[in-house]
């Protein structure tokens, strides 16, 4: 319980400092949303100045920060200049799409990596090990961008899968079951791309962790007591190998939400990536801050989940 409290406090401090940092950094970047309006001859400098003061941009940075914190408390999280509405709801709607994409890709990658890694570790040097190591190496060697472009080409040529967006044009007209099918079909390509990016890392770690435990004395001893190999693998080696993998699981959650930003832009997935790109181009101050804070929160959350799982599974962590 004390651990949970300390952990939560720790996360809170991290989040606050991340928000301060992103505030300062975005503010340091030259220009703001209203600079672009100066090019427009129909808007007078006076109008621009009044708009600035309306959004409080003429106030000093600490005041702006405090006002943003106050608006965060109401759920607004500042204002999006481009959409002219509270930034929080906009960001959150997009974040759900990102979570759908990143979450399913993470799940997929782990579902493949664990059994494949165990098989490779159980029979080192066998054809299955060679096949898996080969796949790992080649996936690692292909840059995500190249893979994405190849996938896009495939989708456009064959027309068997939608290549962009999250829904079809007629989405609002079809029945619920067809809606789910439609979103899933759109999910395939970006999901595949993300999974392929994460998979080699996970595979390599699972294989190494299990192989290392299989080398250990207690596995040899268990074999000496006549326990069958597969039983040792599942009931003894796997729990012992879980420790480094759980930490990796936490990291992989944080990693995916940030690496998915690129994939989202390529496949026009209406997630945080798109939003972030637009916001940066338009200097939409609070949206940039909110999105980067959310990405930080994902990383922190991922690590916290990993730590808690570790605490639940490894008795040595609990004790120390």
């Amino acid at each position: 319980m004390q651990l949970l409290l300390r952990r939560a406090l720790h996360s809170l401090v991290l989040l606050v400092s991340a928000s301060v940092l992103s505030f300062v950094l975005v503010d340091l970047a030259p220009g703001d949303f209203f600079d672009a309006m100066r090019m427009n001859p129909q808007i007078t400098p006076k109008t621009i100045a009044s708009m600035r003061s309306q959004y409080g941009l003429n106030r000093p940075l600490p005041i702006r920060y405090l006002r943003w914190v106050a608006s965060a408390a109401t759920g607004d999280w500042g204002v999006s200049f481009a959409y002219n509405s509270p930034a929080g709801p906009i960001v959150w709607a997009r974040a759900q799409n990102t979570l759908l994409l990143a979450g399913s890709a993470t799940l997929m990658a782990w579902l493949i990596a664990i059994p494949a890694g165990i098989c490779a570790a159980a029979r080192p040097g066998s054809w299955i090990d060679l096949f898996i190591s080969g796949t790992t190496a080649s996936l690692m060697a292909i840059p995500e961008l190249v893979l994405a472009i190849v996938l896009l080409l495939f989708a456009v040529r064959t027309r068997c899968l939608p290549s962009a967006g999250m829904t079809s044009v007629n989405f609002s007209l079809i029945d619920p079951a067809a809606k789910i099918r439609d979103v899933l079909a759109h999910l395939v390509l970006p999901g595949f791309c993300l999974t392929a990016g994460l998979l080699p890392l996970l595979l390599a770690h699972v294989r190494t962790a299990v192989a290392e435990v299989l080398q250990s004395s207690f596995v040899a001893a268990a074999g000496g007591y006549g326990i069958s190999f597969w039983r040792i693998l599942v009931c003894q080696a796997l729990p012992a190998a879980a420790n480094p993998l759980i930490s990796l699981f936490g990291v992989s959650i944080g990693l995916l939400t940030s690496s998915s930003l690129i994939v989202e832009v390529i496949f026009s997935w209406p997630g945080l990536g798109q939003l972030m790109l637009e916001a940066i181009l338009q200097r939409d101050f609070f949206v940039i801050v909110d999105v980067s804070l959310l990405a930080t929160a994902f990383v922190i959350l991922g690590n916290a989940i990993g730590d808690l799982l570790l605490y639940a599974i490894d008795p040595r962590v609990r004790q120390a």
């Binding site: 004395s217 207690f218 040899a220 001893a221 007591y225 006549g226 012992a240 879980a242």
Partner: peptide
């Protein structure tokens, strides 16, 4: 193994599974 001939190893800190 284990049922008719049992082997006790040298290092008791290594031959037990730490998480079970």
């Amino acid at each position: 193994r284990g049922a008719q001939i049992s082997l006790i190893h040298q290092e008791p800190e290594l031959v037990l599974n730490p998480v079970i």
